[in-house]
Design a protein around this nucleic acid. Sequence first.
RNA 1: GCAGGUGUAGUUCAAUGGUAGAACAUCAGCCUUCCAAGCUGAUCACGCGGGUUCGAUUCCCGUCACCUGCUCCA
Length: 456
Amino acid sequence: MADYKFDTIVTHLQTYGFVFQGSEIYGGLSNTWDYGPLGVELINNLKRAWWKKFVQESPTNVGIDSAILMNPKVWEATKHVSTFNDPLIDCKYCKSRHRADKLIEESYPEVAVGTMSQTEMMAFIRERKVACPQCGKSDFTDIRQFNMMFKTHVGVTEDSQSLVYLRPETAQGVIVNFKNIARTTRRKLPLGVASVGKAFRNEITPGQFTFRTREFTQLELEFFCAPGTNLKWFTYWKEYAMHFLKGLGVQKANLRFRDHDQKELAFYSQATSDIEYRFPFGWGEVWGIADRGNYDLSRHQEYSGKPLDYLDPDTNDKFVPCIVEPSLGLDRLALTVICDSYEEEVLEKDTRVVMHLHPAIAPYQVAILPLSKQLNEKAQEIVSILNPHFNVVYDETGSIGKRYRRQDAIGTPFCITVDFDTAADQSVTIRDRDSMKQLRMPIDDLIKYIRIKVFY
RNA sequence: GCAGGUGUAGUUCAAUGGUAGAACAUCAGCCUUCCAAGCUGAUCACGCGGGUUCGAUUCCCGUCACCUGCUCCA
């Protein structure tokens, strides 16, 4: 499959109603995107496919849906509040941006920057004329605090008592419920808990369409296991995740693992490996698989004062479980399958755009196309027979060829034409998007036939 | 946040200091019995806000959005 320009794909998505710009009639809001009628079907199908593989077909795993707003202490425990509250400063001369604390630290390693307030750091930089590492001048803007977490308030008054954050990851909503889940499900370790939900990060530089946005959906699994077994499970879930993507039809050549080296590892992580996809704009992370050790539970245990350890009934060992976390961005997963399935197929007379989406995730599984408008009634009957089972779309306008093209462009795997023999023989013609092959089939057999094809 | 670029129907492009044309797409009618046919007609646009001007889509300023770099991404 050839490579296509990213712009072309984005335009295609907006033309057919997969994605719209957020708040468009008001001039938009930067980096917000809305999923249209086709996009939401794709998104929902992807969620369902993931849930099926990571919950339904994984006997160790269960699911949860946790609140977006959490007690702010959660984010203190995880260091989201402290560590990512960077004091940023810009050089007015060369326009480079720096962290004020790092700036001081580099020039004056003996100074205890950690104990300085923002005002003190500012005064220090001005007094000592700390130089810009970029251009050597000392002409800086004021310090501005930057934290990736969105803040809001609970209640009507905006005092600090009521400050809450929009969660920057769904993981903590799962992790703080560990005891509840283990108790109510009567599960032993290893125990996986899956969750699907929105997370919010005030990224400095979002962009690349839906690839990096400030609001996004995470499909996360927190896999609780005994210390010492985490490496084994880390490898297991890495492979399982890769297998999932390939199962959706994503081409092997466009996927790769990228292991983080020691320097790159987050402070909480023992090992991290990303699954990257070769997007038209370059390789980008789709799935991050992290071995978080027992960092999260230990911190929550410390901050909440509640024991979060686990008694292994087989060995009588008591320990704080480790967590292996495969974390997938839904928006990136959608972009992956879209980019990977998009094709402009050159035919003898013209070109057709085809999205070779796996039938299980295509927005519509079936299109019903009456060959003539006189056959509408019979066609509608078939719509009613199929739509309790599949997403069905009905199209009666334009020539039959044009209607096939429309369905190809949005990835509908099966088109059913109703013709003048249908009423007499109770049969229709079903056409396959990828092979372009046509098959005559009794109406009664349709559900069974399509169900097998869309199975994932 | 900085620098550069872009902004006219859904899309791709025109033209113009006197309020905009086309093609494709969409919709309706005719025709049409399985892969973007044809004919007729219709709907739809100057990102937003100021300024200059008798008059601004056009010139100027601001703003918003998108693209490309830089910075950032636990």
